[in-house]
Design a protein around this nucleic acid. Structure first.
Lengths: 125, 125
DNA sequence: CCTAAATATACCTTGACACGTATATGCTCT
DNA sequence: AGAGCATATACGTGTCAAGGTATATTTAGG
């Protein structure tokens, strides 16, 4: 179980991470919200902990798990070149459409121009 | 082989994607650069193609493979909530350090203030 | 101390997938 | 049409990880 990518390949582990993004949770809470058996949760949490995705603190018999950013940032970093790739493509498309606008003027609204080079765009919101 | 995450869990597939980010390549070129056997390359390319990561065009006997952005953007989208999480953490840290600066003035250079809310930061460059 | 609750671990079984070797398909050129 | 190159597929094999059941460990409270 080497890379961070194999870790987040598992759907239940991604679900756990998504749960923890809002606030820390105990094993039992995760178990109930995600409808997984307790050993399954514990096992996934062990994997996540050893891979640096989460950390835990003790609270009586409970253990509270919370996110640690580093490992997911690794994934984010790997994506960087590809982000450059696809924003370059959007740029090319927009330039092309701009040229279309100029050569064949229609009733369409004027297409907005690019704002600044390679600004990160967040598809998810 | 359902999710995009399982696709990029495989190291050789990630290597292929990274190769294609610079320009399109034929199967043979990929094979040589990555030192993989030809059937292995073809099989991974099939997986990547069916998952929407790449597309191919025919050039005589060769097939040229190039990146398609959508699937990796899915990964990027999944990361969005976590980016918010960790930039919130950096914010908290910076605010804390700012307070430190105020209460215990030292010879250190004044710490820079935050610039704009939640600006995307790119760890990889 | 003993019990109950919360969590971790051991062991087993099963299924999936990555690889290699061999073979099939497809295209080009003569 | 036939030879040769480039790519795809079929099949058999080994490995590894996920889940379940059972059990161990830790802690609180009476």
């Amino acid at each position: 179980m080497e890379s961070v990518f194999e870790i987040i390949a598992e759907p239940n582990r991604r679900a756990i991470l998504s749960l923890l993004v809002s606030s820390q949770q105990s094993v039992g809470e995760i178990e109930r919200q995600l409808r997984m058996t307790q050993p399954t949760v514990s096992k996934h949490l062990r994997v996540l902990r050893e891979a640096g995705f989460v950390e835990s603190t003790v609270d009586a018999q409970r253990r509270l798990y919370r996110l640690k950013p580093e490992s997911l940032q690794e994934v984010d970093a790997w994506l960087a070149p590809f982000r450059r790739f696809w924003s370059a493509h959007v740029d090319a498309l927009e330039r092309h459409l701009d040229r279309m606008d100029q050569s064949t003027p229609t009733k369409r609204k004027r297409r907005r121009r690019r704002r600044g080079p390679n600004r990160e765009r967040d598809k998810s919101e």
